[in-house]
Structure formats: C-alpha cells, structure tokens
Design a protein around this nucleic acid. Structure first.
Length: 694
DNA sequence: GTTGACCAGCTTTTT
DNA sequence: GCTGGTCAAC
C-alpha cells in the first residue's frame, strides 16, 4: 500500500528522533506511548500525512479520536503538514487529500457505518440515537411497567440501573460479576435488573432507537459476522487511535477485529493520563497492547516540549506514586522556570478573587487570556469564580458540565424533531405530549399507544378529544407534527423546522418552565446552530454524538480574530490542551480527589492521574489553589476537609515543592478559625431578629 | 383517575 | 437547580 516510497524529508524536519521513528514506522502494530506534552498530536498528524505522502489512499485511513473537535483539529493539521511537501510524490491538493480521511469518535463512525450497513441487522436507516439522559428515561419507563420486586431497600434508581447496564456492555463483564465487583450493595436486585435490561433492549429495538452502547455493540457484532466482517475489514488499510488509554474493552475488541494481526494499526496514549475508568475504560488496553499483538513496536516519547522543569518535577512526583504504569521518564526541553505556586485562601470567594486578580496581572505581563485556564474537578466548583469574572467583565468560556443540549427546554424542542424523524420513538412522543396543559403521564402514554397501534400515523390523534385546558393547543400541535413529518417533501430546512417548533413551543414555555426569557434566547440560539446541518437526521445525530461543548460554540456570531477569553474547564474536558498559565481550583481532599472516589484504591489512583492531567496542562505558570473553608448547602460553612492540599498524592513535605502564597495578601494562621464561634454569632443574630417582631 | 403543586434531598467526570 | 414522592383539587 505504501510501495516502500520514502517519507518526504520536509515532513520530518521538525521532529525529534523518537517522533521520526513513530512517523515513518511501516507495517505491524505500533504503540506510541506519549507522555504529557511530548508532541503526541504532532506525531500522529505527521504520521497520517506521511502515509498519504507515501501513497496511501486517504479514504482508507481511519482516525479515531475522543471527540469530534479533536478529529477536526487533527485533520486540519494533517492538511498543514501536507502543504509543506512539494516533492513529486506529494498530493496536488492537500486539502482534498486530508478531507478524504475518515475521522471521528468510535460512536460517530459507528453511526455512519450503521446507516449504510445496518439494514442487514434490522436497523432501519432512520434510527435515532439517544444520549445518556434519554437512555435513563427509557429505562425508567420500562421499569415502571415491569413488576419488579420492591425489596426492602428500594430498587435502584434509573441512573444507577443505566450505569450498571452500560458498564456491562462496555466491559463485557457479566451482570453477576459486575454487581459483585462494582455494585456489591445491589446483588439482591440481580433478577430484577436482568428483567429490566431485557425489556430495555426490546423497547429500543421496537422503537428503532440506539443508545451510545448499542453503537459500539453493533459495530463489534458486524465485524464478528462471517459475511459482514471481511467487508468491513477491507474498508481500511490504516487505523489510528488517539487517547488509547481511555478506550474500553468493547472498543478494544472493535480494533482487534478491524486489524486482527495489528497490521496498519497505530495507537497513541499515555497510561498516566487514563481518566475515564468510570465509564468502563481500562488502562489494561494500553498495558497489554504488546500481549495482544505479539510483534508490536513500542515507541516512547519522553521529551516534553510543554512544561518547565519545576512543573514537570511536581507532576512526576504525583504520578510516581501510581501502582502500575509503563516506564517512562519525562524530561523537559524547557529547563528553567518559576516554581509552582501553592495558594491558600480563606474561602472560595477569596480564591475566586485571587484568580481573577492574578489572571489580570498575567495579562499585564503579556500573557493573553486565551493562554490561561482555570481547571476544576467538578463543574459546579467554578460557580463563585464565574460570578467574580462576570462582575469584573473578564470574558471566559466554560467547558464541561451540563450542556446546552441537556437543558429541559432544548430537549423539549428536539423531541418534536425526533418524533417526526422516528415516530416509533415513544419517549419523544410522551415528552412532547406532556408539555400540553392537562395532559400528564397517563394520557400521554395512552396517546403514544394509539399512535403505535395506528402504525405511527399521526391521524391517530385527529379524533382525540383533548381536555379543556389544551383545546386551543391541540389543532396546532397536530398540524405542527404533520408539517414536520412532511418537511422533506416540502423542502423545509432544519432551521425552518426548528423555527416552526419554536413558535409553537413559545406559547407553552411559560406554563412548563421558569425563566422563560432566557430559555427563549437559548432556543433562538439553537435555531442558528441548526442552520449548519444539512438535514434533520444529521442535525439530530450531531446533537447527540457531538453536542456543542462550550459556551463559545454556542455563540451565534463567529468568534472574532482578536477576541480574547479565559478558559474555564473541568479537568476531564481539558484533556489534550495546554496553557501558559494554569490555575487548579479547590486542591483539597474531598474535591481533588473527589470524596466520591475515596472508597477504593483504583478510584483514588484515577484521581491521581486526573491530578496529573491537570498539572501537566501548564507551560510556565502553575497555581494550585485551595480555600481553607468552603460553603455547602448540606454543611453550611465548614473547614475544607484536608488542610494540606494534594497530600494524598505527594509523599513527604508537600509545601517544599511549591512557593507558597496567601490569596488575601496577609499571612494566614496555621489553622483556620474554628466554625464554633461563627455558629454562636448566627444564633445571636437569630435572637436579635426574633426580638424585633416578638 | 389524573394532573400538577409543593416539598425534601442530593449534586463527578462524559461518548 | 433537578428528581422523586406526597397529596389536594380537578
């Protein structure tokens, strides 16, 4: 396939020796163990460019990434690399060449594949894909219909059931074993869960609905089929996988089946950065790569181009305590630099105001906002900071946390389109029906049944006698659905369809939700966003598989060239990114590591890697901030769990690795004020108030 | 029989 | 702020 053609020298000029080996490697399976900041993306994109330059057909290259954003960025960089080549073997139009490469997430690639080849396994091409929240709602609906044993402690709730189900599918570990290992407290429910999962599967099949897990499962099963498998294998000569440490056993199986002997397979990853164990990913995939593919070549990338040595020293210390890992030694190519800063704040407000001050101070020194980021373990941790930034007019974009697509009003609107796209989808039917006043769960379920019995013809709803409260809405409601159903024939664009729903929904939104005004604005935004999709089907698929991930992607106007903004992100969503200055918020025990993860060594190890990911995002300045007190609804104002931040990850004297600083400017007492006197003050205030109206 | 108002409790990370 | 449960009113 590459005919022994040589790699154009231009493509190698910027690379170090190890990277060159990885880029020019031919034939058998290749594992690139790329430490943080070692030019992983550069290596991967150069490798794709080199394959193309050596004559590989771009359409027969599959590039699997973790997000679509990553895929798009990589293909852009492949393009840039191809432009550097002006040897005769270089393709004439690099843009077209790079565009031919099939790229995306495992899930998105599978969805495309199943639209084409799914009919053989009984998947109609108009199947719809549901996200996690919808899957939970279907599970919940099924659970309600089933006669489940109501044992003493109650049957697990929908989120738990769905999590168990998903873990089973993605790890391939059976129900009993999964319960024993990961959910020992649910062992008594195994019969009920088994029934539930069976019904859930049947419901999805009857309604032509796939969840995230089905996408992988069907792809894997197609590959195992003796007729379909060989066809699918022949589709690609080269398969490259980014972030391999975050793949799960099902994804590994797909890869094994795509390239059984590993020929043409390249995986890139860093076991030290595996942070998706909670959704079934396993470090074993990368640790066992050489066992799976006997003749695998391993190329470690150890020269770090990103972080200054003091930052790297700290990160290496943190990861040094991990139990099992592939050996590598990160060396900095940028030796000197400021030591990481440990910042103590009295409380979260002071932490927020310190970060805002320091961000501005760095701006004065010439660092742009876009080169700075604030990272946190949980999305809601950033709330006080967001308030502070808004107050000071510092522009920022937030990644991670609840997404636009997950908000109730957006789901409402999308449900109309989903129902029109796939009228078998009873979840969407019930969702849109219950929006109407006077129609609740029961009536909605009955109407959904009628629709099914009428073979999904909306005429079934014509002779429905609506309750008084919804008389005025009903005709418009049915008319709208008819209109959406005929949208294709009427050449109605997605944007027009969204607008039609929006106008109808406008009359209901006040009844259904608070804050109607802001929600209306969101829906206008959604209409703008929908214009980018060519048709309804791809709009719906993109919204579930690649929803907008930040407030920036939702901006209706394209970002201006000189627009500058600070990045706020969960650590998870910051994977793969780098910044000149990084602030890690809430570095106290209970937040980092999360108190939800303290129950087992494996979970704490994942928190350790998460911490490592956070630290290694920084190029020059790194701040680890921790408030001494925090305010929670549950406990009120209280001491943050651990006074020594990161002590769970660092042995010995934590402070000695940092320069210390107090956020408030004043030297702090060794221990924070006890909360005892504060409680007294509060009761005194209560007494005073009582005396005023008694 | 249904709907919807009201209250209590909890809230990780995401394809 | 969202979900699940309870209960009064339609």
């Amino acid at each position: 396939m590459t005919d022994g053609a040589t790699t154009p020298p231009n493509l190698l000029s910027d690379l170090n020796e190890d990277q060159r080996i990885a880029v020019t490697h031919e034939g058998g399976p290749l594992l690139i163990v790329a430490g943080a900041g070692t030019g992983k993306t550069t290596t991967l994109t150069h490798r794709v460019a080199a394959l193309i330059a050596r004559g590989a057909d771009p359409r027969r290259i599959l590039l699997l990434t973790f997000t679509r954003r990553a895929a798009a960025e990589m293909l852009q960089r492949v393009e840039a690399s191809l432009r550097k080549i002006d040897t005769p073997s270089g393709p004439s139009d690099p843009r077209m060449a790079a565009r031919g490469v099939v790229g995306g997430t495992f899930h998105a690639v599978s969805a495309r594949l199943l639209r084409q080849f799914g009919s053989g396994v009984g998947l109609p091409p108009d199947f719809t894909v549901v996200d996690r929240a919808d899957a939970e709602d279907i599970v919940n609906a099924v659970r309600g219909e089933l006669e489940l044993p109501q044992k003493m402690p109650k049957f697990p709730k929908k989120a738990t059931c769905t999590a168990v189900y998903s873990r089973i599918v993605n790890t391939g570990v059976g129900l009993t074993e999964t319960l024993e290992n990961d959910y020992p407290h649910l062992i008594d429910f195994s019969d009920g869960l088994r029934d539930l999962f069976r019904s859930y599967r049947e419901r999805k099949r009857a309604e032509a609905v796939l969840d995230y897990d089905d996408l992988l499962l069907y792809w894997d099963q197609l590959l195992a089929d003796e007729r379909a498998g060989p066809m699918l294998r022949k589709q690609f000569d080269h398969v490259l996988v980014d972030e391999y440490q975050d793949t799960n056993p099902l994804q590994a199986s797909i890869l094994r089946q795509l390239r059984p002997d590993g020929d043409g397979l390249t995986v890139v990853g860093d076991d030290a950065q595996a942070i998706y164990g909670f959704r079934g990913a396993t470090v074993r995939n990368i640790l066992d790569f050489t066992d799976t593919f006997g003749d695998a070549t391993i190329v470690p990338l150890e020269l770090n181009y990103r972080s200054r040595q003091p930052i790297l020293d700290l990160a290496n210390d943190v990861i040094g305590g991990a139990t099992e890992r592939l050996e590598k030694n990160l060396r900095a190519s940028r030796p000197d630099g400021p030591r990481p800063m440990l910042v103590r704040a009295q409380d979260e407000a002071e932490q927020a105001s310190f970060i805002a001050d320091e961000v501005l101070a760095l701006t004065e020194q010439g660092f742009e906002l876009r080169g700075q980021a604030v990272l946190f373990r949980s999305s809601y941790h950033s709330a006080p900071l967001e308030i502070e930034l808004n107050r000071r007019g510092i522009p920022f974009h937030k990644y991670g946390g609840i997404k636009f697509i997950e908000t109730a009003h957006v789901k409402d609107l999308v449900a109309f389109l989903r129902l029109a796209e796939n009228p078998r989808d009873s979840l969407s039917a019930r969702r849109v029906l219950t929006l109407l006043p006077g129609i609740g769960e029961k009536s909605a379920a009955r109407l959904a049944d009628r629709l099914r019995e009428a073979d999904h013809d909306f005429a079934a709803w014509d002779d429905f006698n609506p309750p008084a409260a919804t008389k005025e809405f009903w005709p418009g409601f049915v008319k709208l659905l008819r209109q959406l159903l005929g949208a294709d024939d009427a050449w109605m664009s997605v944007e027009e369809q969204v607008r039609a729903v929006r106008l109808f929904y406008d009359g209901l939104i006040e009844f259904v939700h608070d804050h109607a005004a802001t929600r209306r604005k969101d829906l206008e935004q959604l209409e703008v966003l929908s214009a980018r999709s060519s048709d309804r089907r791809s709009f719906l698929t993109e919204m579930t598989l690649d929803p907008p991930t930040s407030t920036r992607e939702l901006a209706s106007r394209p970002p201006e060239e000189d627009e500058d903004f600070l990045t706020l992100s969960t650590i998870h969503s910051a994977k793969g990114l780098e910044f000149d200055a990084v602030f890690v918020m809430n570095c106290y025990d209970g937040a980092i590591p999360s108190d939800m993860s303290l129950e087992s060594d494996e979970k704490i190890d994942e928190e350790r890697r998460l911490c490592y990911v956070a630290l290694t995002r920084a190029r020059t300045h790194l701040y680890c901030c921790h408030p001494l007190r925090q305010y929670t609804k549950r406990r009120g104002l209280s001491d943050a769990y651990g006074f020594t931040p990161l002590s769970r990850f660092l042995s010995g004297d934590v402070q000695s690795r940092f320069n210390e600083r107090s956020a408030g400017g004043e030297p702090l007492p060794e221990k924070p004020l006890s909360t005892e006197p504060l409680a007294n003050v509060r009761s005194a205030v209560d007494q005073r108030l009582d005396s005023m109206w008694d």
